[in-house]
């Protein structure tokens, strides 16, 4: 376990360095985007190695303990953001919004106990990977949307007006954020469907109003409301940005709050 934790620490250091350089790059107007991207990629490679070492040692994927769930989500969120950072250069300054959120998650990960958990027999199904994969993509694209929304909101409050001046105007950013939210809706829908299929196979019911199912459904509904609000009232980008913040906060609480607050997030998940 020692070596996999050391590799994880190295990955975290690479992520933190990339975040710090990205934030200072935005603040000081000195863009080191290739270095930031390189460090993100390095962090991803190292964390993939660490996750692989743990998977090989404990015999199952990172799906059980708080440590594993945080670690796999740091990995997936960084992967989605790094891809967006790489492919859509215009949203790169949003790293100044996204990376502090990632720092919080990494700090939480470092505090979590890296011990092992029991892997229930009902988790031995391909649906687990599909369901969790969809969930991770959903949260990842919502995080990218949040980064864009954060830039819009910071501009609204007069923060970093000059630093974010190189970015497209709020309308264009709003359009870009909407695209990520739309992607989020697709993957959130897929997550709910695959989760229901898994639940039917594993526990003999596709829906049981358990805490995680219910809060996931509420998140999906809020996302649908946010998209319909945008279509109905054509609100100002700032209002859309607040909706994105609300969706992300709810999704975050559903992912990382409910499973660790409720004694039985999924009914029958033993």
């Amino acid at each position: 376990m020692e070596s996999e934790l050391q590799v994880l620490w190295a990955a975290i250091v690479a992520y933190v360095l990339s975040g710090v350089i990205a934030i200072f790059g935005v603040a000081l107007g000195r863009h080191r985007e290739r270095i930031v991207l390189g460090l993100m990629a390095l962090g991803l490679v190292l964390q993939t190695l660490s996750l692989g070492m743990r998977w090989s040692r404990v015999g199952h994927g990172p799906f059980i303990t708080l440590f594993e769930i945080l670690s796999s989500n740091v990995w997936s969120l960084m992967l989605v953001f790094a891809l967006a950072y790489w492919r859509i250069p215009k949203l790169r300054p949003s790293a100044a919004v996204v990376m502090p959120i990632m720092f919080v998650m990494m700090g939480w990960l470092m505090l979590a106990h890296p011990g092992e958990g029991h892997f229930p027999p009902t988790y031995r199904t391909p649906w687990l990977f599909i369901h969790i994969g969809m969930a991770k993509v959903f949260l990842g694209v919502t995080l990218v949307a949040l980064g864009i929304a954060g830039v819009v909101l910071m501009r609204r409050f007069g923060i970093g007006l000059t630093r974010f001046a190189g970015l497209p105007d709020d309308r264009r950013l709003d359009e870009l954020a909407y695209r990520f939210m739309a992607l989020g809706l697709v993957f959130d829908t897929l997550m709910l469907i695959t989760g229901a299929i898994w639940a039917q196979d594993a526990w003999g019911r596709y829906w049981a109003w358990d805490p995680l199912e219910t809060w996931s459904f509420i998140t999906w509904l809020l996302l649908a409301i946010a998209i319909h609000l945008r279509l109905t009232f054509r609100p100002q980008p700032v209002r859309n940005a607040w909706m994105i913040v609300a969706v992300f906060v709810l999704a975050f609480l559903t992912f990382f709050g409910v499973p660790f607050v409720s004694e039985s997030p999924h009914k029958g998940a033993v």
């Binding site: 509420i218 509904l221 649908a224 319909h228 609000l229 109905t232």
Partner: peptide, 13 residues
């Protein structure tokens, strides 16, 4: 649509 979606929220709770 929006009003009905909003109505669905307390119904779920």
């Amino acid at each position: 649509t929006l009003a009905l979606l909003a109505l669905l929220l307390p119904a779920i709770v």
